[in-house]
């Protein structure tokens, strides 16, 4: 798609355009955020609990750290964790989903399919947030463990989405053609079925990144995710909650606003892609295919 075509599409779908802009800014700030901040996000400025001003757009917190700098630098932790985690569960989910959906014409395939689906059932029987919290709790709070936990709880979503798409795609005539030509199952799956089953998976990946950001911030809010002094939104919101009841609202409220906009941006992008690719989407109403119940 050329740049001009892209612009035409975005002009016709404002929601998608908003999503693209927010996601692009998020990615940019995840890459360069910590380098362009006006103040050191881990060091006090000496002026404690300043209300938002031109110098400190989001004010300063109880230890005198510039909140705006923490929020801008926080893109790195929250957005990177979410994207890496979703990439991992996407990779795992696509492989397992393909195995669980593709008709391999082998006596063993049925049993494999059954096992994979029952395992997914088991994982999805546990509440998402608690499972993630328990995983991080057992392995200890670190960036790597948060990524693994988030990847693990989201994997069944991609597994089911891929399986659903593969089940539909493999009924296409070109798949029959590939089989009749004597192509091995593996090759048929990899070259013909999977590439044509990716659209719903990728549209959903964007939405899931948004919820992974929410999950990361939620875990860190509880102290079970990224630990201070690393700049991270959930931890920043938690640190400001003590000041909220005495009137210093900006430390919690403004980072939360940025967090909401980012989650919304990824959701808008995902929904927009879904609208373009499958106007009548039957999976939209199935809660098992969504990140959390939301």
């Amino acid at each position: 798609m050329s740049l001009r075509e892209l612009l035409t599409v975005l002009r016709g779908d404002r929601a998608l355009a908003a999503g693209v802009v927010i996601v692009a800014i998020s990615l940019l700030l995840a890459a360069i955020g910590p380098w362009i901040v006006p103040f050191d996000p881990e060091r006090a400025t000496g002026e404690v609990l300043l209300a938002p001003s031109l110098e400190h757009p989001f004010g300063t917190d109880a230890s005198g750290i510039d909140v705006f700098s923490r929020v801008v630098a926080g893109f790195r932790a929250d957005v990177t964790i979410a994207i890496v985690a979703v990439a991992l569960s996407l990779a795992g989910g696509v492989v397992l989903g393909a195995l669980a959906g593709f008709d391999f014409r082998s006596p063993w395939a049925g049993r494999g399919r059954w096992t994979i689906l029952r395992l997914a059932d088991m994982v999805q029987a546990l509440p998402v947030f608690i499972l993630a919290l328990a995983l991080v709790g057992m392995t200890g709070p670190s960036v790597r463990n948060v990524i693994v936990a988030i990847a693990f709880v989201n994997l069944p979503i991609f597994l089911r989405l891929t399986r659903g798409a593969v089940l539909v795609t493999q009924r296409e005539a070109y798949v029959d053609a590939a089989r009749v030509m004597g192509l091995p199952s593996r090759v048929t799956l990899r070259r013909h079925v999977l590439p044509n089953s990716m659209e719903p998976v990728i549209a959903n990946a964007s939405i899931t990144v948004g919820f992974a950001v929410l999950l990361t911030a939620g875990l860190s809010f509880l102290g079970a995710g990224v630990r201070p002094p690393t700049p991270e939104w959930g931890a920043t919101i938690a640190s400001g909650s003590r000041n909220l009841v005495t009137g210093e609202w900006w430390i919690s409220v403004l980072p939360g606003l940025v967090l909401s906009v980012v989650v919304l941006g990824f959701a808008l992008l995902g929904e927009g892609l879904r609208r373009r690719w499958s106007p009548a989407d039957r999976t939209a109403g199935d809660p098992r295919l969504q990140a959390g119940p939301r």
Binding site: G210, L214, A217, G218, F221, G234, I237, G240, S241, L244, V245, G247, W249, S252, V253, G256, L259, S260, V263, L264, A267, E271, R294
Partner: peptide
Amino acid sequence: FVAGALPDFWIGLALVF
């Protein structure tokens, strides 16, 4: 659409304020 993207802990804090 928007409500689903909001962090509940943040909404709670805002309501407290």
